[in-house]
Computed example of a mutant assay.
Amino acid sequence: MKRLLAAAVTAAALIPAVPAQAAVDPVTALKRQFAPGHGVTISETARIESKRSRDDEVTRMAGSVEFGASGPVAADVVFRTVGEDDSRQRWISVGGKVYVQAADLADDLPFGRTWVLMEHLKGSVITSAQPVDVLRPTTVKTLLAHAGSLRDGLRQGALTPAQARGTGAYEAFSFRLGLNSQALPDRVVTGQNGTPGSRSTVETRLSGWGARVSVKAPPVDEVITYKDLVAEKRARAERLSQAIPDGSTSSLGLFD
């Protein structure tokens, strides 16, 4: 038995050591995900808290983001707001265009139209309520450059207004960033101070990296442009105002 153990130890000593793999750079790992027809699942909770609890608001979002060769090119996400005014909005960004479907617009839409094309958002990809675009490699690089370690593998830090503008945000914010085993973002939490006594926090979760994603535009015959929608509302107001002696439309509530 002793000779057998000695032989095993000798044999183990002769096996060449396998070099440890270098740590994956998160920025490089993110860029490698940018393959047409693939994407990521995204979910989010945004909270606005203020001195008056009745002004508190919670918005939850869930959906999918589709990548192209250099980043997000399309998204299909649903936002649900719970608070003083509950609402649900679905946003589809594809082909350089942005479409929205919302219950509070339904009464203004012509028969058969269920989507509004937001021409002023041309080229945008609506993916999140975060103040920063966590799917942009330069943003991840900036966050990591200003982050320290925190428990459970999270990094945390804060950016000044000048640093924040470099990530696409407009104001200073604090953050926590989590990376999965492939060095890809799986959790991002940001916090910002708003009006006196209010603060907003947004927590984003990312999963299903590399899954097949294909975002389609709404059927053309179900879409009206925002410009045409406004024109439709004005025309309707003018028709209704003909029956009002002073021509007032304020009491109709059409432009509240």
Results as ranks from 00 to 15, higher is better:
residue 84 E to D: 13
residue 87 S to C: 10
residue 72 P to T: 02
residue 74 A to R: 08
residue 92 I to Y: 11
residue 82 V to A: 15
residue 80 R to W: 13
residue 83 G to R: 06
residue 80 R to Q: 15
residue 74 A to N: 07
residue 65 V to R: 06
residue 92 I to F: 05
residue 66 E to M: 04
residue 65 V to C: 00
residue 74 A to I: 02
residue 63 G to L: 04
residue 83 G to E: 04
residue 91 W to H: 11
residue 64 S to I: 02
residue 69 A to I: 09
residue 70 S to F: 02
residue 80 R to K: 15
residue 77 V to E: 06
residue 66 E to G: 01
residue 71 G to K: 08
residue 87 S to R: 13
residue 71 G to W: 01
residue 89 Q to G: 04
residue 86 D to Q: 07
residue 90 R to D: 00
residue 72 P to C: 06
residue 78 V to R: 11
residue 87 S to D: 14
residue 83 G to M: 00
residue 72 P to H: 03
residue 67 F to D: 01
residue 89 Q to H: 09
residue 82 V to P: 12
residue 69 A to P: 08
residue 80 R to I: 10
residue 69 A to Q: 03
residue 71 G to C: 13
residue 84 E to R: 15
residue 63 G to V: 00
residue 72 P to G: 01
residue 89 Q to D: 02
residue 78 V to M: 11
residue 76 D to T: 00
residue 81 T to H: 14
residue 92 I to H: 12
residue 66 E to F: 07
residue 86 D to E: 14
residue 65 V to H: 00
residue 72 P to D: 03
residue 76 D to V: 02
residue 70 S to W: 02
residue 76 D to R: 02
residue 68 G to A: 00
residue 81 T to V: 10
residue 72 P to W: 09
residue 90 R to N: 06
residue 87 S to E: 13
residue 86 D to I: 09
residue 79 F to W: 05
residue 88 R to E: 14
residue 69 A to V: 03
residue 81 T to K: 15
residue 64 S to H: 11
residue 84 E to N: 12
residue 65 V to L: 01
residue 75 A to D: 08
residue 74 A to Q: 06
residue 89 Q to L: 12
residue 63 G to T: 07
residue 82 V to I: 12
residue 70 S to C: 04
residue 92 I to N: 12
residue 79 F to I: 05
residue 90 R to T: 07
residue 66 E to D: 10
residue 65 V to Y: 06
residue 86 D to S: 10
residue 70 S to R: 09
residue 73 V to G: 06
residue 73 V to K: 12
residue 89 Q to V: 12
residue 69 A to T: 10
residue 81 T to R: 15
residue 82 V to D: 15
residue 63 G to R: 03
residue 66 E to I: 07
residue 90 R to M: 01
residue 76 D to C: 06
residue 84 E to G: 10
residue 63 G to D: 02
residue 75 A to S: 15
residue 76 D to S: 08
residue 83 G to F: 01
residue 64 S to N: 12
residue 83 G to H: 04
residue 65 V to G: 10
residue 83 G to S: 06
residue 67 F to A: 07
residue 92 I to L: 14
residue 92 I to E: 05
residue 73 V to Q: 12
residue 77 V to M: 08
residue 74 A to V: 05
residue 92 I to S: 11
residue 70 S to A: 13
residue 77 V to P: 13
residue 87 S to I: 09
residue 91 W to L: 03
residue 86 D to N: 14
residue 80 R to C: 11
residue 91 W to C: 01
residue 82 V to G: 13
residue 88 R to Q: 14
residue 80 R to M: 14
residue 75 A to N: 08
residue 80 R to E: 15
residue 67 F to L: 02
residue 76 D to F: 02
residue 80 R to Y: 14
residue 63 G to W: 02
residue 86 D to A: 09
residue 71 G to Y: 05
residue 63 G to C: 05
residue 80 R to G: 13
residue 84 E to F: 06
residue 76 D to H: 03
residue 84 E to P: 00
residue 68 G to D: 04
residue 71 G to N: 07
